[in-house]
Design a binder for these strands. Structure first.
Length: 444
RNA sequence: GGCGCCUUCGUCAAGUGGUUAAGACACCGCCCUCUCACGGCGGGUUCAAGGGUUCGAAUCCCUUAGGCGUCACCA
């Protein structure tokens, strides 16, 4: 059997749209699942759109997503070069061959000489697409397209055919926007007498705007590039996992997949031919699943830059509290800000109906708690827990009734990651007592 | 506008003539609980519309509507 070879052929724009990333992922997964090769090829034939370092950017992004090309600009391979601007001579040769065969012709204009493909005026062209079946388009819809521009560079429609053939690409996986230009490509393959590869045109990734309208995912929908998402604090693995399921389903109820599981389970049959809306809620959930499944140590490492104000010996402990409460890393600073800076005193917070708490009652409880806490020298979490529970027991009050005013005094906010004991431990004895005493003063 | 593609819960989706139309996210309720989370249990909401074919249609055919794409010396 012929070796499966797929390619990802982006133009170097310095931006990795999530739809492009998904295309690359599927091409990669398909090749790898079949024991084939995945090729990265840069389509930079439009010299006016040159972006510095864009090739490195693409390579780095793929690497972060764990999509590793077998061949590419910096990966080597038997079909180099993998950058189209470096292959100009090749396209020129084939374009001239087409002119000789009378399938193309020269055209003069003020820009210089270009070569156009001669399209049949009648009949129709049919090609097979794995997702859509046979697609037929009348040749009368086709124009004599430019093959070689007057600057000597090929157009996309020409270069991709030459390269896909020369690089022995077996399956072309790309977006639906190329469906209508595929007959032109097919005609080219026929003109050369080349074998036609298998086409798989993927449905686009859509975005939902605030007003509910749905359109192709774009910047108006917020973070829409892989890098935007990383910046927002999602794990690359979570993004890849989510994106893989956006348009492909494994026919089981499994949702969490490692890259190797993805490769193992991937098949073309699971690909969906209708557009899929990118759902940030579900990405959040999946991201949370990844965090929860991490060890405290690993989470602390990944959240390192957001933990900068916490002393090293407490980072892993903090991680254990945060990892079940976070969907993206960028939420961490707001969540733990109170550890460093106590929000302004607000007496309203000391009133809580459910726990039957009033500012007056709070003062009593805090005062007694301060007395108890001052005597504690072993400020470990376990010891704090022990002392606090016996303190509550002796008081005859309900746990919530005692904890509420303490939490408010310590954090000055109703919601905290972790309970009062956790906060006491994180804050340390000195600061804890300072905050408690300060609240007491203001309450009296 | 021509041509092409698409259409099952709000979203991702299973489903290929006979099912109570899975599952997940989100949402709601309950339990757990010192707050918020986590975890557990439960709930509502779906076959775009209209015609056929058939004993029987989400599944097959036709029409309509809507969405998207494409008509470049961009990719």
């Amino acid at each position: 059997m012929k070796k499966i070879r797929t390619r990802f052929a982006p133009s170097p724009t310095g931006y990795m749209h999530i739809g492009n990333l998904r295309t690359a992922l599927y091409a990669y997964l398909f090749a790898k699942s079949q024991g084939g090769d995945f090729i990265l090829r840069i389509e930079d034939t439009d010299r006016t759109r040159y972006v510095a370092d864009a090739v490195e950017f693409i390579e780095n992004t793929l690497a972060a997503a764990k999509i590793i090309p077998d061949e590419g600009p910096h990966h080597g391979g038997n079909f180099a070069p993998y950058v189209q601007s470096e292959r100009a001579e090749i396209y020129k040769k084939y374009a001239e061959e087409l002119v000789e065969k009378n399938f193309a012709y020269y055209e003069e204009s003020e820009n210089g000489v270009a070569i156009r493909q001669k399209m049949p005026k009648t009949g129709e062209t049919t090609f097979f697409d794995v997702l859509h079946g046979n697609i037929t388009i009348s040749n009368s819809e086709l124009e004599d397209q430019i093959l070689l521009k007057s600057d000597g560079m090929p157009t996309y429609n020409f270069a991709n055919v030459i390269d896909d053939h020369l690089m022995e690409i077996s399956h072309i996986i790309r977006g639906t926007e190329f469906i209508t230009s595929t007959p032109k490509h097919v005609l080219l393959y026929k003109n050369f007498g080349w074998e036609i590869p298998t086409f798989i045109h993927l449905a686009p990734v859509m975005g939902k705007a605030e007003d509910g309208t749905i359109s192709k995912l774009s910047k108006r929908h917020g973070a829409t590039s892989f890098n935007d998402l990383i910046e927002a604090g999602y794990l690359p693995e979570a993004i890849t996992n989510y994106v893989a399921l956006l348009g492909w389903n494994p026919k089981t109820n499994q949702e969490i997949f490692s890259m190797s599981e993805l490769i193992e389970k991937f098949s073309l049959e699971g690909l969906s031919k209708s557009p899929a809306v990118f759902d940030y809620d579900k990405l959040d959930w999946m991201s949370g699943e990844y965090f929860k499944n991490m060890s405290d140590e690993d989470f602390a490492k990944v959240a390192e830059k957001y933990f900068s104000e916490i002393s090293d010996d407490k980072k892993v402990y903090l991680a254990s509290l945060i990892k079940t409460r976070v969907k993206k890393l960028s939420e961490i600073p707001d969540m733990i800000k109170f550890l460093k800076i106590l929000p302004d005193f607000d007496i309203e917070l000391f009133t809580n109906k459910r726990n039957k708490i009033t500012p007056e009652k709070s003062a009593e409880i805090i005062s007694a708690a301060v007395e108890m806490l001052e005597k504690i020298s072993d400020w470990s979490f376990e010891n704090l827990e022990k002392n606090i529970s016996s303190f509550i027991e002796k008081s005859g009050l309900k746990t919530g009734t005692v904890m509420w005013p303490l939490r408010i005094a310590l954090a000055m906010q109703k919601v905290t990651p972790g309970g009062v004991t956790e906060i006491l431990y994180l804050l340390g004895k000195k600061i804890s007592l300072e905050r408690l005493n300060s609240a007491l003063e203001k309450l009296n």
